[in-house]
Simulated scan of single mutants.
Amino acid sequence: MFFLHFTPIASTVFIDKKISQEIQKIFDIRSQAILDKDIKTLESLYDVSRKYGAWAYEHELKKMKYLHGWSDKQGIKFTNIISKTMVKWVKEKGEKFTVNLTVCTEYKYVYEDDTKKVNSFRIGTYHSLDLKEYDDKWIIMREWYTDPFADSMHLDQIKTEKIKEYIISQNSRDLSNIGERRKSALEYADRYCGAAGDKEFIYNKKYKNYNPNGGDCANFASQILYEGGKFRKTYSWNYDKGGSKAWVNAHAFKGYMVYSGRASVVAYGTYEKVYKAAYKLMPGDFVAYEKKGEVTHISVVTGADSKGYTLVNSHNTDRYRVPWDLGWSDKGIKFWLIHVHF
């Protein structure tokens, strides 16, 4: 998580059309700068003379470098990045404004050897930022959001050339013949993918949102298997006005699914050890991401791209049909690839 401490002293809360338009403009410029690796334009969006503005810019610069490093590993080229902003509220404090907003960013890409097939995925993020107008230009003084790439900024540690050759050599996968329970799980995962949604940014209101309590990823995975996949609740894995540990905790969820016999391990280890096995995953299976011996995140398989590369949905930073390792593929992360027994 990318976090800058800030306690706003608020006055009036409102939504301003002009500020909303300026924010959309900033995100449009930023998306294009990241796509073009335009460091100068990226820096111009921030007040780098202030500590928080400089931190926000430096983090975004790291993210830009990571995205392009990942694309080199993958053998793809990003063709477009489109950010859709939705301002929730604005607070005015003197000459600056604190803004709370949701952003859905769509990334489009093609493989180097097949530029006609355009793939895409969406990531939803929740932002708080401070803006100020300088000489008729709005710039960012501070920004906080849960960054989907914060856990993987060292992709250069991975030997990417052989991986790239393998990925490019693969073919598309036909996933249309999956069983009805897997199809139902997939439909649920797509419907409630939150800020990564195409039209509606929704979670299922029947369930508590655990993002403020450390993360909603396991809760979402449990919902997918229960509501969509029709798995029955058990004493250990259940939800009644709140979730059991195995329902809401990522490490406990992985352990329960495997040791109960409801799922089995396809592969475990670093990215270099498991990436080939990931092609065996089907919609409704899941990936558990381990950091320093603890599973910290769960994502559910929802499809494959034009080269058969596995795609996932998740909560926390909300994901829709995102390549399964994006944001997690450095040597500090280990992966559990889990096949669910529907």
Rank of each mutant, 00 (worst) to 15 (best):
Q21G: 15
G293S: 05
F286W: 08
D190P: 00
K206P: 00
I15T: 15
G215Y: 06
L131P: 05
E227D: 13
E294N: 12
A56E: 04
T115I: 14
I82R: 08
W70F: 13
D198L: 12
M86L: 12
K162W: 09
G284C: 03
K280F: 06
D136F: 09
E58P: 00
W138K: 08
H339Q: 13
I224K: 01
K183D: 04
D147H: 07
E294V: 14
D36L: 11
F335S: 06
E290S: 04
E133L: 08
F27V: 05
F2T: 10
I82D: 14
K65R: 11
C193H: 05
R50S: 14
Y259H: 11
A246K: 08
K162M: 13
L101E: 14
I39N: 05
K233M: 15
K245L: 10
I76V: 15
E187I: 15
S264M: 07
A267D: 11
S44K: 06
D240P: 00
Q32R: 12
I26F: 03
Y256D: 05
W144A: 09
R321L: 13
S49V: 02
W89M: 13
W144I: 15
P148C: 06
A288I: 01
A195T: 13
E187M: 11
A189P: 05
N100A: 14
N100T: 07
T12Y: 13
Y271D: 02
H5G: 10
K62M: 10
E58W: 04
Q32S: 11
F220V: 01
G229M: 07
G243F: 01
Y111V: 03
K18Q: 14
D285K: 05
K280M: 09
H251M: 01
V295T: 08
S260Q: 02
F149M: 09
W138P: 08
I163M: 13
Y271M: 14
A246H: 07
V312I: 14
L281H: 04
G284S: 04
A10R: 09
A263I: 06
T7R: 08
K233L: 10
G269A: 06
S184W: 01
G332H: 06
I167S: 03
Y66Q: 09
Y203T: 10
S83G: 11
K233E: 15
Q157S: 09
D216N: 13
V118L: 09
N177A: 13
A277G: 00
R321S: 11
H68C: 02
E95Q: 12
K96T: 12
Y226E: 07
R50Q: 14
R122V: 06
G179F: 04
